[in-house]
């Protein structure tokens, strides 16, 4: 019964200490039926620590909340915000709200997908980039909107995707050939 552990989650990962301390601060009473109201905030915290929610983290949380692993996993799979696979270092999110959609967001998405050779929801093999679609960031005046990590690119035009990606390649210390 050996289980493959994700690289992030060896016992020595300091993330667990942080998560443990966070859950301590919530003062969970294992027999109080209302304890579960803090579960979703805990999952948010855990995802901010680990970047995603692998099985080890889920089991850890389930234990501390005295609920089943199935319950935790069920909650995670229900909400779009939680992910059980790691994201790229540079997260490219394309807004697919209605305002962005009528202003051509699907074409912008295609541009990014073509440029990186991955589809929405995937990560490049080197782990540098991932593409996601999201629902309305509320910056409709800038439609179509692309978020790279927390940076907002507004009124993105077709053909701009590669330029935006290049900005981040530079950050990885990669030389971008002049065209």
């Amino acid at each position: 019964m050996t289980e493959q552990k994700s690289p992030c989650c060896t016992e020595s990962n300091p993330g667990f200490i942080e998560l443990d301390a966070y859950i301590d601060s919530l003062k969970i009473d294992p027999i109080d039926p209302e304890r579960k109201e803090k579960l979703i905030m805990t999952l948010h915290k855990a995802q901010s620590i680990f970047g995603y929610l692998p099985a080890e983290v889920q089991k850890f949380i389930a234990n501390r909340f005295a609920v089943s692993h199935a319950h935790v996993s069920g909650v995670i799979s229900f909400y779009n915000y939680f992910t059980t696979t790691p994201k790229g270092k540079t997260k490219i999110s394309i807004c697919m709200g209605t305002a962005c959609y009528v202003n051509g967001a699907n074409k912008i998405l295609q541009d990014f997908e073509n440029a990186l050779g991955i589809k929405a929801g995937q990560v490049t093999p080197d782990g540098r980039f991932s593409i996601e679609t999201l629902r309305c960031v509320g910056a409709c005046v800038l439609a179509p909107v692309v978020l790279v990590n927390d940076h907002v690119y507004g009124k993105v035009k077709q053909g701009q995707a590669e330029k935006i990606i290049e900005e981040y390649l530079v950050e990885y210390g990669e030389k971008v050939e002049e065209q």
Binding site: I40, M41, H44, Y79, N80, Y81, R135
Partner: peptide, 8 residues
């Protein structure tokens, strides 16, 4: 405050 997690 209780946070949602992206479910319409």
């Amino acid at each position: 405050v209780r946070l949602g997690a992206g479910a319409f």
